[in-house]
């Protein structure tokens, strides 16, 4: 592991953050009455799309893991389709978990689903980019001593911080402050976004800080 790797990681993460910031400001030039809180669902869609796009582009450009040898078109297409299925599966399973956590079952289903989509964007999409539709690899990355590169390490950190952010975002909901952002699911999406951004910021720093201690099997 070299410092250049960490630097690359940092730049990639900064670009991700930049895409989120852009998704807040750019649409107001094209859409009337756009604001993160009032037209929240629109923002969620835009944010998800832009983060996904940036992730994909960065993955294609940076190529953090040695790409597989096979490069036939059919292989690529099946891989892409598999990724889509994985993404949808993760959206639905997040939706189910939110409902189990106490989200309303029938009312606000669209809102809940968009929250699931956003959270999937922050967690599943990077996993898909980095590890591919390979569930075993995912399980490996998210278990003790399963990390094999700084990319996977940062993936671990951003994913967990996105989850924690969403979880923490649920806490203001019962408070009687009467703020617009306390409505379901705004606080949770904001929490997820903040958690994701925080993960993006801290993971390069944390890796840099612990670079002496971190040893990866494959490096």
């Amino acid at each position: 592991m070299k410092d250049t790797d960490i630097k690359r990681l940092l730049y990639v993460h900064l670009l991700c953050i930049f895409s989120i910031i852009l998704s807040i400001f750019i649409p107001s030039f094209f859409l009337e009455n756009f604001s993160v809180l009032e037209t929240h669902l629109t923002w969620l869609c835009i944010c998800s799309v832009s983060v996904t796009a940036v992730n994909l582009v960065l993955y294609l450009v940076v190529k953090p893991n040695a790409s597989s040898k096979r490069s036939s078109l059919s292989y690529k297409v099946t891989r892409f389709l598999k990724c889509c299925i994985y993404f949808l599966m993760s959206c639905f399973s997040f939706h189910v978990i939110f409902v189990l956590y106490g989200a309303p079952l029938i009312e606000l289903a669209l809102e809940t689903f968009l929250l699931a989509v956003t959270l999937s964007t922050f967690t599943t999409v990077p996993c898909l980019c980095l590890l591919g539709p390979n569930f075993k690899a995912w399980l490996r990355v998210f278990s003790r001593n399963g990390v094999t590169s700084i990319w996977e390490n940062s993936l671990q950190i951003t994913t967990v911080s996105s989850f924690v952010g969403t979880w923490l975002g649920a806490f203001p909901i019962p408070l009687d402050w009467g703020r617009p952002w306390q409505e379901w699911p705004i606080s949770c999406t904001l929490g997820a976004t903040f958690g994701y951004v925080a993960g993006l910021v801290t993971s390069p720093l944390w890796i840099y800080w612990n670079r002496k201690k971190l040893t990866y099997k494959n490096n």
Partner: peptide, 19 residues
């Protein structure tokens, strides 16, 4: 310490339990 949370404990306790 928060009246809102005491009122909403019926939802907060399962939330913590699920977590």
């Amino acid at each position: 310490f928060s009246d809102s949370f005491v009122i909403a404990e019926a939802r907060a306790a399962p939330f913590l339990l699920i977590s």
